[in-house]
Amino acid sequence: MKAKAFIQSANDQPTTLAELLRVHKWAVTEAFLGLYAYATQSGAVAFDLAVGDGFWNDIPSRWLFGIDYGRTQPQALRYMIEKSNAEVRVYDGAWVVEKDGFLPRRDFHMKTSFLINNSNGRYGMVVGSGNFSSNGLRQAAECGASFLASQKLEFTKTFRSAYESAENLWNVATPAQDIIEEYEKRWNSSQASSAGDSDEPAPNYDEVGAFWIEAGYVTRNRGPEKPGNQIDMPRGMNRYFGFDAPENLAVNSIIGNVTFESPSGELVSNNLRLGNNKMEKISLPIPETHGFDMYDGKVLVFSPIGDRFRMRALEAADFETAFGHRLGAVRSMGSGRRYGYIK
Rank of each mutant, 00 (worst) to 15 (best):
E315H: 15
N168H: 04
G34M: 07
T40N: 03
F260Y: 12
L64P: 00
L249A: 12
R106H: 14
F292Y: 05
A316V: 12
N188Y: 05
R310G: 06
T321D: 02
E98L: 15
I116L: 11
E266Y: 01
I342V: 14
D107C: 03
F159M: 04
L274W: 09
P246H: 13
D307K: 00
D12A: 04
P203S: 08
A313W: 08
A44L: 10
G52D: 11
F55H: 05
A50V: 07
Y38F: 02
I67G: 02
E207H: 09
G70P: 09
F108C: 10
G256Q: 09
D58C: 08
D100V: 15
F241A: 04
M333V: 06
A50K: 11
L20F: 08
A195D: 04
Y183C: 08
N221K: 06
G324Y: 11
G223W: 09
P287G: 01
S119H: 06
E288Y: 07
N257A: 12
D232Y: 08
E19V: 09
S189I: 05
Y36F: 15
E19T: 13
E266N: 03
Q75D: 13
V45A: 10
G297A: 03
E261I: 14
I255C: 02
S269I: 06
V258G: 13
F132T: 01
P227Y: 02
Y205G: 12
N270Y: 06
N118C: 00
Q151W: 06
Y339I: 12
F241C: 03
Q8H: 09
G196Q: 01
A162K: 01
R338Q: 15
P224W: 11
W212F: 13
I254M: 13
V45W: 00
S113W: 10
A94D: 15
V258E: 14
V258L: 13
I213Y: 02
A31Y: 02
D58Q: 11
G54Y: 06
E181S: 03
I305M: 04
T259N: 10
S269L: 05
A86I: 10
V301K: 09
A31N: 15
Y69R: 14
A145Q: 12
Y69C: 00
L153C: 08
S283W: 03
F6K: 08
D197E: 13
E247H: 06
A202Q: 12
N85E: 14
S9C: 08
Q151G: 07
F47K: 07
R106Y: 06
S61E: 05
I7W: 08
S119T: 13
G136E: 05
R105W: 10
D107V: 14
N252Y: 14
L300I: 11
A18P: 10
V23L: 01
